[in-house]
Amino acid sequence: MKKLLSNSRFYVIGFVLAFVMFNFTMCPEKATGPSNEVSKGIEPAELKAFAKHAENAFLSGSKDSILSITYNEFAESCKNYLPDNPETLKKFGEALAGRKLIYGTPFYAEYEITINGEKYTLAFAQSGDGIWKIARF
């Protein structure tokens, strides 16, 4: 019990540290001077893990693997034009490795990828149950 209390103290310190960092070490909303910084929201660890999972699914070249981690509604539509050619899918997977987060929330994330110099966007989402899926590409 004593150990637990001792450890809890570090938990609280960590929490307070983050609070201080986020609230007292950042510029105020009306900071003077121009700022072109665009908020990208968040990219939780679960999302990052799923993005890697999706990348691997494309790299596997398996259409079924991709569709299995895609929202049903979109899968119904995209299964008709998602190619069977593994090379094309792999190319998308390779591009996904270099994804850039445009904006992320606890439920939704939009990424940008580049293939042959052309930019495309795709989105991952989860429905509140923590299970991330491909929303569109």
Partner: peptide, 14 residues
């Protein structure tokens, strides 16, 4: 524990 506390705040914040 320190990291966990930090991460909890970050999660709540965002």
């Amino acid at each position: 524990m320190l990291i966990a506390g930090f991460a909890t705040y970050v999660a709540l914040h965002f």
